[in-house]
Design a protein around this nucleic acid. Structure first.
Lengths: 228, 228
DNA sequence: GAAATAGTGTCTTTGAGACACTATATG
DNA sequence: CATATAGTGTCTCAAAGACACTATTTC
């Protein structure tokens, strides 16, 4: 109850963390150890601990670390999902976050009661997820695709140092369609967000230039679209 | 307390409603009737009533109606602001909404304890607003400016039927800079979101075509930038 | 040399900026 | 008529798409 005498809704945080492995888009899920939706796969999240969490972003980071052992390279608020019917325990309000990380295997057994695991996005339709998490993931995926069109956000799916070919693969995986290598190179150049380093070889061919994010750059803004 | 034994943060909703009058951008504020920040101006908002509000959007609409008598033409989630220090009553989480409306005078005395009033955005620095509302408004303004560049959202600051000249004025007021009439007309054409009606005269000159939103159009998406 | 991947040159296409021009209204 | 606002024609400019070309590496 608040001072105003209202019953407060349950407030939770949920994280949709994406990574790319082998030209496929993965989402990080955890198996629920308690009711409701016991043993169903769900988004890693939970309640704010006002003693531990400076703000909701800190809460999201803490929950991810705690439940999956991973720390996102990028995190932003997605949207609030709310209503009386989305959680059987009662009226709930959940702030969903959208996160990116270079693919890292998860030690599937974090603690005695919960598993964490990467799931290919295109296989999620075969799972029954807890709450409205299927829908939240769909919204997050849409946001990821939009941002891949007009920002350099996809670099957070790559290590600190990466090649144009790798970034092209990541963007194409996110968008589900091919883009022009030339256009991408023009954007990298125009963005003025990256610097070169040495070299590196991948399979077969010529060695690729390695790029690196300039320190202190705000990567979230880029003015024009691509691929749409 | 939740089932998990945590103290839940206070969850509230705040609304940043914009309107344009006389080529100036206004924000709707209410004078607080209770502590904290008694008698300070603040964003209209409040606690969710789980019996009345289907979801947080419904809560935002209800609070606006209740505290200001107005119903927004457009409403979207802006961002969650949270932390231990933003509200003296304790750790709080506030979901801010961003709303647009054709300018409508408010009956300043909604009930015995609170006033609602439109304030020119450029005069807000002279006010001491409650909580972090000054900052929230700044974020909302930034969002409004961004969306004015790549979407047709500014039409929600106009009546159902409007002229290109009016829309140009609204966009210029939001952006704080002039845009090309020709570019705007190309965008209206390209968007395929509007239909023509009859005519209308404004001051002096030739009568302008009246445009109208096509039914069922999603106005929130438009691919390219303008003015940036 | 063949195959594979990296990177360039350059023509086309799209849409915005600039701005002069025409059109239609009022007094 | 002058003035004011509405709307068009069209050149330029910026950035993406398409795609053939060159470059460098492994086998």
């Amino acid at each position: 109850m608040t001072e105003q005498g209202f019953i407060q809704p349950l407030f939770t945080v949920d994280n949709v963390m994406f990574a790319i492995n082998n030209a496929r888009l993965y989402v990080l899920l955890v198996k629920r150890a308690i009711a409701p939706y016991h043993n169903n796969w769900s988004l890693p999240g939970g309640f704010v601990d006002i003693a531990l969490d400076k703000d909701v972003e800190a809460c999201a980071m803490r929950k991810l670390k705690q439940k999956t052992g991973l720390t996102p390279a990028y995190l932003e608020q997605l949207e609030v999902f709310s209503g009386a019917d989305r959680d059987p325990r009662g009226y709930s309000v959940s702030l969903a976050f959208f996160a990116l990380l270079p693919y890292t295997p998860v030690s599937s057994q974090i603690n005695s009661v919960s598993h964490a695991s990467w799931w290919p996005l295109d296989q999620l339709t075969q799972l029954t997820l807890a709450f409205d998490h299927q829908f939240i993931i769909a919204q997050a995926h849409q946001r990821l695709q939009q941002k891949a069109l007009y920002s350099m956000l996809p670099v957070f799916c790559l290590p600190a140092t990466f090649t144009v070919g790798q970034l092209k693969m990541v963007i194409e995986t996110i968008l589900g369609k091919d883009i022009q290598r030339k256009s991408l190179m023009r954007r990298i150049e125009a963005s003025d967000m990256f610097t070169l380093t040495e070299q590196k070889q991948v399979s077969g061919g010529r060695q690729a230039q390695l790029y690196q994010l300039k320190p202190g750059v705000d990567i979230t803004h880029f003015s024009r679209n691509m691929g749409a």
